[in-house]
Simulated assay, not measured.
Amino acid sequence: MNFKDLTNKTLIADKDLDWEDLGSGVKRKIMAYDDNLMLVKVAFEKGAIGAIHHHPHLQMSYVAKGSFEVSMGDDKKILNEGDVFFAPSNVFHGVVCLEAGLLIDIFNPHREDFL
């Protein structure tokens, strides 16, 4: 299934979607999106880095598995399974994976650059 097939889908099976290898121990899977909202799974190997970056989108990320050192603006905190971080528009943020993990990222609006 390609990304365009996901637009406005309401019932999505994980097994029907492929991982996109981003290199350096990081891969992602776009699960669903429409113009306003996008949900993405991002898997990290231990030691993998989600580089410091910013974007105009609102982002919430749920730590589904593992442990991450999260940088948000000038703050840093270790977050573990069950924790959440919120990245407001244009705030620099990034992660370092301390224990192999999985983030569930939600964006508003959807990330056109991921498609």
Rank of each mutant, 00 (worst) to 15 (best):
I104G: 00
V70Q: 06
R111P: 09
I104V: 15
K29Y: 00
A64L: 03
C97V: 14
I106W: 06
N2M: 05
S67I: 11
V70A: 04
A32N: 05
L39A: 07
F85H: 06
M38D: 04
V91T: 09
D75H: 05
N108P: 11
P109F: 13
N36M: 07
S71G: 14
P88A: 12
A51P: 09
I12F: 04
V91K: 01
K27Q: 13
A32S: 08
N90F: 12
K15G: 07
K9T: 08
G101I: 06
L115K: 12
A51E: 08
M60P: 04
R28T: 00
A51T: 05
H110Q: 10
Y33R: 14
D113F: 13
D14M: 02
S89E: 15
V95C: 14
D14W: 03
M72H: 11
L39W: 01
V96H: 07
F85L: 01
G23L: 11
V91I: 13
A64Q: 02
W19V: 06
P88S: 09
S89H: 12
L11Y: 09
K29H: 00
H57R: 13
R111H: 09
H53N: 15
Q59L: 08
Q59F: 06
S61R: 03
C97R: 14
D75S: 08
L6I: 00
G66Y: 03
K27V: 04
A32T: 08
L115N: 10
D35L: 13
N36Q: 15
L11T: 09
D83P: 03
E69Y: 06
G23C: 12
G25A: 13
Y62S: 10
I106M: 13
G23S: 05
G25D: 10
L58V: 02
H53P: 07
P109H: 11
Y33V: 08
F107E: 03
A13T: 14
G23V: 11
S67T: 01
M60H: 08
R28C: 02
F68R: 13
P56K: 12
S67Q: 08
G82N: 01
L22I: 01
F114L: 10
M1T: 10
V26Q: 03
V63E: 01
I52T: 08
H54F: 08
L115F: 07
N80R: 01
D16L: 07
V40P: 00
A51L: 14
L58D: 01
K76Q: 06
E99P: 05
